[in-house]
Design a protein around this nucleic acid. Structure first.
Lengths: 256, 256
DNA sequence: ATCTGTATGTTCGATGGCGAACATATTGAT
DNA sequence: ATCAATATGTTCGCCATCGAACATACAGAT
């Protein structure tokens, strides 16, 4: 299955005015992002800003004892590397590819130059940063107040929103790492969702059968973030969503 | 006790170059912030950016069922209202005065004008935003992984860092709201700290007796954020800390 | 066809935090 | 001095989640 990649698949790049696109796009480099690849390691300097097209990347904080929690999910609605234009050189978080795909990337220096022109890219990035803060905040609240069952639903929805189909490739172990809970707890929660007919689960491949049910079972955190994000980025083109996915062949994208 | 207020008591304002200060300071308005005052209500438009001098403000997310969690603590090292220059008009969070004091504020329009000059204020605010994201992220992790005992210590330390003395005025009920836990749980945790001799607690007035002990008992989240924040804002003047506070009269600042 | 690694399912005891109900102490108003 | 309001202390049963140990199932390599 060959996909023709275009920068415009990323919503932020697509929202830039033509003259900025003409100036910037020649410097974009298309890079494949295999599953479990690490874009940024905690504390290490960042060299590029990434604009995902069909990949999903999670930002996770890793603690001293090795335990971790994902605080953010980024897909083609956003970008990675806000630290570069916020003034830092690194962050204490790690960026991990959660769903394989591609991204366009821009060298740090090029971003800074464009940033200093104080044009659309700056405004867009700031606005996206605001949406990002909303998502991190809601993650903090969710971690405090909601059950693992609810958080699993939220996680599946967040991931689905960033794909154009209903199949997620991630093991329960992986989801456990992302949510910062035990793998067994994910197993229990996933079983409930299977018994309710919301999903099927098989060795790292999840098919979402009943999305509305997931939304019902999820805590409010999902919709609050989605509403706020849509509001902030409302002038951006809507992502296309394929509702009937049964005709698309199911291929697990295991790489690493 | 009369305090002579100066904008430079806020570290961000103090870090601005003289020409920016001259341009901006005439528009600053000194406002008292009584305990429990609400600076921003969730979803309401913001009219000013606030630069605290000796007040402490907490940002809390309020959920549909009324439960809440604080995701951020701001004192004279920072500012409130980043949303205004990030592109939004409001946020889903509420800003609550946690320790009474004063702040200088700047009208929204003035901030935007200064922002459009793309000078030091912009750079400073972006850098601060980065530090803020770090704190929110760490809060998310902390909520997942650490005990209430540890989080209480973190909270006390965060608050202490933003005062020039060792007395905190907040009830256990209030701390419970901030951490998103039951008041009774705070009581238990505070009792342990009292028995260890780290603090004394009496009807809303906490005296920190052994700060190093608090740092030992706290989770890593406190020091990680502090380290990262100091790094990002290292060129800013150090806050002054009064170590011997026994000579300062103890006054509870209850207002609301 | 078998083996091996990986992914998922299951069970059990321990425990931290919750919800609720109630007791006690302190402060301020009158 | 008394009362009401507020703040803190205490107890008990409940439950979600944890940690650990183990069982089962599936896929890929040979």
């Amino acid at each position: 299955m060959l996909i023709k990649h275009r920068p415009q698949q990323n919503h932020l790049l697509a929202a830039l005015p033509p003259e900025v696109q003409e100036r910037l796009f020649p410097y974009l480099e298309l890079v494949p992002l295999p599953l479990r690849a690490v874009l940024y390691e905690s504390g290490r300097p960042m060299r590029h800003v990434y604009f995902p097209t069909d990949a999903i990347i999670s930002l996770q904080y890793v603690m001293e004892n090795g335990a971790s929690t994902a605080i953010l999910v980024v897909g083609n609605e956003g970008l990675l590397g806000i630290t570069l234009f916020m003034g830092g050189e690194s962050t204490p978080s790690r960026s991990l590819v959660q769903s394989a795909g591609y991204a366009y990337r821009l060298p740090r220096q090029r971003v800074k130059e464009e940033f200093n022109r104080h044009g659309q890219l700056l405004l867009l990035m700031l606005r996206y940063t605001q949406a990002l803060i909303t998502q991190i905040s809601q993650t903090a609240v969710c971690n405090r107040h909601h059950s693992i069952d609810q958080q699993l639903c939220r996680w599946l929805l967040l991931s689905m929103d960033r794909l154009s189909h209903n199949r997620l490739t991630m093991t329960q172990e992986f989801i456990g790492n992302m949510l910062g809970v035990r793998r067994e707890s994910v197993t229990q929660a996933a079983l409930k969702l299977q018994q309710l007919g919301a999903i099927t689960y098989s060795r790292g491949l999840i098919k979402v059968l009943d999305r509305p049910m997931l939304e019902t079972l999820s805590c409010e955190c999902y919709s609050v973030v989605k509403k706020e994000t849509d509001l902030l980025l409302h002038y951006l083109p809507q992502r296309q969503v394929i509702t009937n996915t049964d005709t698309i062949p199911t291929v697990a994208l295991h790489t690493a």
